[in-house]
Design a protein around this nucleic acid. Structure first.
Lengths: 205, 205
DNA sequence: ATTTAATTTAACCAATCAGTTAACAAAATT
DNA sequence: AATTTTGTTAACTGATTGGTTAAATTAAAT
């Protein structure tokens, strides 16, 4: 009875609803009944399709966490200058988070309390050659004298801190800077250029 | 029957236990029984002293969130150069988080799902003149030609992103950079200087 | 058409959890 | 010393919640 005619299959409806509820409330705060209601189905169907709350969460978490590590290797492999690559990574990453603002906090928050080692280990498999390649790119440009001597690990941390943190701190930023949601979104659009400039100004010789 | 002889009063034992449990598990994940066990007292005492789980959480949250906004106004009011002030703020803030690594994620995570507007509003009262003063400091130095033209709001966001984010992303950083807890702590110590240098290099003319 | 398999639901169940109660113990007050 | 107030506990309660079950419905296979 695989429904290929209906536009959304039951399983898809469940996943869509679960995504919303888990991201909004976290694993502990989420209620199976709310997921069922949002999906417009009977609660028993959640268990029919996904066995348990934990299993369903695992599916959503892996999917979501996977999105947090996009394929930037293509960018790093190109023969463009490092500054151009940083620009592309920063712009693409901020764009990605603008489209999914709750993604970083959800993933990092759940990773922190993850009793389930399974989930933590997921990243090790997920770990592509991205970091390794980024480190080599940076080291090469230091040797070539294009950028200052700086720890590649710290530089990478800096780049992603500048991209992701504002979204995690959004409620606090809103209050302290007295800005509304629209102004916040506008600021984040600006940051695509501002963060890139900030980084390059700091490391260029 | 105010116990001023025992080294720790019952209320303090409860707060200490609640702090640990709430920070580790969040509001939804925390269990009153676990708090009682950690405090070595009967569960009913929690309600005797703090009425409800939400009230107890509120006390812990306000206390914790308060720590996230230290009194940097003294630093900003001094007549030292801006670079020196940035150095002090960055060093002190990273030091603060090294001592309480779970503080930022706990506060930001709970603020995000805070159904309770009471808690969100807490920051508005808490909001001291810090941001305002920091903005003026930056604008002045731009006019004086000491630093480049840059949006003060974005610069402030950058500074705190660089300080706080690594602690929030600790589990991911650990896996991607293949470092253990000790190496992580060492890196964070390094960042007191690295982040300061990174910022100053970026904004100085 | 009939049988079989997959999907869906309402009702139910057992466990967990925040919160209460009533009795008891320890201090403080008189 | 007697009484009142404060602090503490074990046992209980009602509500919520993840999960199950058995019956019903729908689709697929024969």
């Amino acid at each position: 009875m695989v429904n290929k005619i209906k536009d959304t299959t039951t399983e898809e409806k469940i996943l869509e609803a679960a995504r919303k509820v888990f991201i909004e409330r976290g694993l502990d705060g989420a209620r199976m009944q709310e997921i069922a209601d949002k999906a417009g189905i009977n609660k028993a169907l959640l268990h029919y399709y996904f066995r348990s709350k934990e299993k369903l969460f695992e599916v959503i978490f892996k999917e979501t966490a996977g999105n947090l590590f996009p394929k930037f290797e293509m960018i790093l492999n190109s023969d463009k200058p490092l500054f151009h690559k940083i620009d592309e990574i920063v712009s693409n990453y901020i764009d990605l988070i603008i489209k999914n603002p709750y993604l970083p906090l959800f993933v990092l928050s759940e990773m922190n309390k993850s009793r389930n080692l399974q989930l933590a280990n997921f990243f090790e498999m997920q770990r592509n050659k991205f970091v390794e390649k980024f480190v080599k790119n940076i080291e090469r440009e230091i040797k070539r004298g294009v950028i200052k001597k700086i720890s590649p690990a710290h530089l990478i941390i800096n780049i992603f801190s500048l991209c992701a943190f504002p979204f995690i701190a959004k409620p606090v930023i809103g209050i302290l800077l007295e800005i509304d949601d629209l102004q916040f979104k506008y600021m984040m659009e600006q940051r695509k250029k501002i963060v890139t400039d900030f980084i390059i100004a700091s490391i260029k010789k």
